[in-house]
Design a protein around this nucleic acid. Structure first.
Lengths: 102, 102
DNA sequence: CCAGAAGTACGACGAGTGTCAAACTTTGAT
DNA sequence: ATCAAAGTTTGACACTCGTCGTACTTCTGG
């Protein structure tokens, strides 16, 4: 079931940072931001197994960075940009608006 | 020895984030920013032993967040605000400009 | 109804990291 | 000289976290 998994309505800086400190998770956020669209779990370009991917998406969702909902067997992911920008102004911009450099 | 310990002249986002994800280290940075002055290691309000404190200061220095120099037996710490703002615009502001919040 | 696709749940394992105590070093003051 | 103050170094330890494989659940299409 779990038509829609639980999403936090409040944000914790510590939790958000712990979510964003992992390169794979930061990559997920970056890809979401770059595409400007919702992306299903399996469509991300990340170098980990499916079970590990599930773990990363859970961490991101629980920290409030993404919103998830089902479409058939696929789980779609939305970047909660507005919510994040409201809670921590400038944070996402500072972390994902880096062109190629890294 | 080590009149002046080694400081990086280049910055790595991953390393900076790993430094800032720890609450104790973020507290150190916040205290430095709030005071606007250089502070010696022993004068910070942090809930860890001296050896642990040394570890945290090393991590911050190696990531390029602070600059350290000796004054007698004391080690002074300077926040590298300008350098950081130049490398990652908005990052420090997003992380330490939180008033009381928590 | 069945097969396959898309994720999830569950252990398990290894590496990293924050923590401390104890011993040591160096500098400043008496 | 001596002593105390301020950090550093060196293990050691516990705990967390990222990772994977395997088994399981659901939903879709034929």
């Amino acid at each position: 079931m779990a038509r829609t998994p639980p999403h936090p309505d409040t944000f914790d800086l510590q939790q958000v940072l712990e979510a964003l400190v992992d390169p794979v998770r930061r990559s997920i956020v970056t890809q979401l931001d770059a595409s400007g669209q919702d992306i299903k779990c399996g469509a991300f370009d990340i170098p980990v197994s499916k079970s590990t991917a599930t773990h990363h998406f859970n961490v991101l969702r629980e920290a409030g960075l993404i919103r998830q909902y089902y479409v058939g067997t696929s789980r779609m992911n939305t970047l909660r940009r507005a919510d994040l920008d409201d809670a921590f102004p400038g944070l996402l911009d500072a972390l994902i608006t880096r062109p190629a450099g890294h």
